[in-house]
Computed example of a mutant assay.
Amino acid sequence: MAHKPSQLIWHNGHFVPWWEAKVHVLTHGLHYGSSVFEGIRAYATDKGAAIFRLRDHVERLFESARIHRMQIPYSQDDLFDACKQIIRVNRLTNGAYLRPIVFRGYGEYALAPSPQLPIEVAIAATEMGAYLGAEGLERGVDACISSWQRPAANTFPTMAKAGGNYLNSSQISMEAQRHGYQEGIALGTDGMLSEGGGENVFLVKKGVLYTPPTSAAILTGITRDTVMTLAQELGYEVRQQTMPREALYVCDEAFFTGTACEITPIRSIDGLTIGNGSRGPITHELQDLFFGLVKGKLADRFGWLDYVGGGEIEVEHDLHSALA
């Protein structure tokens, strides 16, 4: 996921230059993975940049922090406003990818940290294109079933979008790319389909959409929820149910969903072509509705867009000098 650095990052309530947003090498989150984060997209519209489902993402960030017993030293409204401000101050009028992160800071080595250990918060915003490639949105990507499994429910909480969880995701994606695929798909400990390295998975069979349930050790994705809502509005039945890997081998269409990958078709799985080997008609229909909505071309009937607005953001005088 290539990105171009922007000028400023919001860090603990202040704007700091991109290359000066630093933490100590003994930061707890670096050593033990004690961080939670979100990926959020903003899109360019005729009314200016609009952030997609911002409140849902910020709410999930707080839920992830609560699961890991981290008290965020800001309100949800504080971070809601900061996400808008970081886009405005960096003048990202063509859309942006936001990365809010909450992590335990520097102070001690303890696995069970004391309440006095600082909780730090940062929000970065950058330009970013299609996560799995621009061509992938139309032509689809090649995926494989990974040899790595998702963890069992009683190992660590998969409901939280936590940094430590993504070591598993990294293994899935790296393995897939070593073997020539764009992404891998993990099974759960029960041998049933779970999710991609960083995406939820849908398949289509005889006009019905299927996706693994929350019990399959998946992250309950916000784009996943969006697609289920849009599919039902279009009149399609959506079933959340456990499925074996071979369900992908015999489906008519399949696609990934996620903030980064948006809605990306899967054209083959383990070398077997899915459908016609490109974007299927239902996937296409969902993409058209999704992108029409997030780019402001269709009415925002679900209240999913938060417009960034205009106006100057007050930045400290010495920061202006540093950026000059």
Results as ranks from 00 to 15, higher is better:
His3Ala: 12
Lys4Cys: 08
Glu20Tyr: 07
Lys22Ile: 11
His31Cys: 00
His31Asn: 02
Gly33Lys: 07
Gly33Ile: 08
Val36Glu: 04
Val36Phe: 05
Ile40Asn: 00
Arg41Val: 03
Leu54Phe: 07
Leu54Gln: 03
His57Val: 08
His57Pro: 01
Glu59Gln: 15
Phe62Arg: 01
Ile67Thr: 11
Gln71Glu: 15
Gln76Thr: 08
Leu79Trp: 01
Gln85Ala: 14
Asn90Ala: 08
Arg91Ala: 13
Leu92Asp: 05
Leu92Val: 01
Tyr97Phe: 13
Pro100Gly: 08
Pro100Leu: 12
Gly107Glu: 04
Gly107Asn: 06
Ala110Asp: 07
Ala112Trp: 04
Pro113Asn: 10
Ser114Ala: 12
Gln116His: 13
Pro118Glu: 11
Ile119Asp: 00
Glu120Lys: 06
Glu120Trp: 00
Ala125Thr: 07
Gly129Asn: 06
Ala130Ile: 01
Gly133Gln: 06
Ala134Arg: 09
Glu135Val: 05
Gly136Tyr: 07
Leu137Ile: 13
Glu138Leu: 14
Glu138His: 14
Arg139Met: 09
Arg139Ser: 14
Gly140Asn: 00
Ser146Thr: 08
Gln149Ile: 08
Asn154Cys: 10
Ala160Lys: 01
Gly164Ala: 13
Ser170Val: 14
Ala176Phe: 03
Arg178Glu: 14
His179Ser: 13
Gly180Glu: 13
Glu183Ala: 11
Glu199Thr: 14
Asn200Phe: 03
Asn200His: 07
Lys205Phe: 09
Val208Gly: 07
Tyr210Lys: 00
Ile218Glu: 00
Thr223Lys: 01
Thr223Trp: 00
Val227Ile: 14
Leu230Phe: 10
Gly235Pro: 05
Gln240Pro: 02
Gln241Asn: 12
Tyr249Glu: 09
Val250Tyr: 15
Phe255Asp: 09
Cys261Glu: 13
Cys261Met: 06
Glu262Gln: 15
Ile269Thr: 01
Gly271Ser: 05
Ile274His: 02
Gly280Met: 11
Thr283Tyr: 02
His284Arg: 15
Glu285Tyr: 00
Leu286His: 03
Phe290His: 13
Phe291Gly: 00
Leu293Glu: 10
Val294Glu: 00
Leu298Trp: 10
Gly303Glu: 05
Leu305Lys: 04
Tyr307Met: 11
Gly310Lys: 15
Gly311Lys: 10
Val315Met: 08
Leu319Asp: 09
Ala322Asp: 09
Leu323Ser: 07
Leu323Pro: 04
Ala324Ser: 14
